[in-house]
Write a protein that binds this DNA or RNA. Structure first.
Length: 312
DNA sequence: AGCCAGGCTCTCG
DNA sequence: CGAGAGCATGGC
């Protein structure tokens, strides 16, 4: 059994699209699991692991269940976590009115109504995922991420499903570089990830340090860290801090999709995309980015035809 | 087979 | 300054 609570759903909210995007429409992606129309996640609270499940109810609410031992306190943690992970706290109305005046964007993402920009559990998770994803294709990054989480995450069972909490900074810090290289990371990415783990353990990357900074201040701070460039910092801003007006203009896939939608396939540079986005999408550049990535993921899925998403 | 992927650092002119 | 090499591996 276990404890549960029902959350009111914001409007608009599409559970399937949001969790599907979080799991790359594959049912499982790293620490996130989406099966039986239920979103599962194992979360860390200090040294404890809280296992939470979320599922929409017939009366248009979101039921959050606590699957690990605990009481009201743990349930409240699980419920807050789900609100954070699924971005239930943000207001999408401004973005949607902007969309009405943007033909290119609404043609591409008009069918994604109710998608919310899902978030990571922590700054550490967002940075590690960003570092893994540098330069390589989203597919390769996903494979490598799976391997790391299986090897270093904490295994948990949730209603018969295998689940992993995202690895701790300690676990990466204690690993030898050779072990991590064995998991398909380049020697350089191993350095970056272990350095990020060490800085996290030393308290240098605590989320509180960033919450009062504006985007450019956060980027300036993070890019002092070797291995974290502008793109990775922007990834962290979107995924960990939930910033809604971030445009990773250096992102190759984003440049290509914008080029297709607005420039007839002509190549655009990073400064061109930055200027275009500022004029066109501010203050919702991050939402536009999430929607375009989701659009790309759906395109790829439709083309590749593998790994069906859960029925919605 | 070879080339490109949701970057970043380092080196060199 | 800007340009170019190298990185690791999966997919086309």
């Amino acid at each position: 059994m276990g404890l549960s609570v029902k959350l009111p759903l914001p409007e608009p909210f599409d559970f399937h699209l949001t969790v599907g995007h979080q799991t790359h429409f594959r049912g499982r992606a790293g620490a996130d699991l989406y099966v039986d129309a239920t979103y599962y996640r194992a979360l860390r609270r200090g040294d404890d692991i809280i296992v939470a499940a979320a599922k929409p109810t017939d009366d248009a609410q979101l039921e959050v269940r606590l699957l690990s031992p605990g009481s009201d306190r743990e349930l409240a943690f699980a419920s807050d976590a789900m609100r954070h992970l699924l971005a239930l706290d943000i207001d999408l109305t401004g973005f949607y009115s902007m969309l009405e005046h943007d033909q290119g964007l609404s043609d591409a993402v008009g069918r994604l109504r109710g998608l919310r920009p899902p978030r990571s559990e922590s700054v550490f998770e967002a940075l590690v995922v960003a570092i893994i994803g540098q330069q390589i294709s989203a597919n390769v990054a996903r494979v490598i991420r799976e391997g790391l989480i299986e090897a270093y995450g904490t295994p948990v069972e949730a209603e018969g499903h295998a689940l992993h909490a995202f690895p701790t900074p300690e676990s990466f810090n204690n690993a030898t570089p050779d072990e991590l290289r064995g998991l398909k990371l380049s020697a350089r990415k191993v350095e970056y990830i272990q350095d990020t783990a060490r800085r996290t353990l030393e308290g240098e990357l605590e989320i509180e340090r960033f919450t009062n900074m504006d985007n450019e201040e956060v980027i300036a701070e993070l890019t002092k860290v070797r291995g974290i460039g502008r793109w990775s910092a922007e990834w962290m801003l979107m995924r960990a801090l939930g910033r809604l007006d971030v445009l990773p203009a250096g992102d190759l896939a984003l440049r290509r999709v914008v080029s297709e939608l607005y420039f007839d396939g002509a190549t655009i540079t990073e400064p061109q995309l930055a200027a275009f986005g500022e004029e066109r999408w501010a203050p919702y550049r991050g939402l536009a980015t999430t929607y375009l990535f989701a659009y790309l993921r759906q395109q790829r899925l439709a083309k590749g035809g593998e790994a069906p998403a859960q029925p919605g």
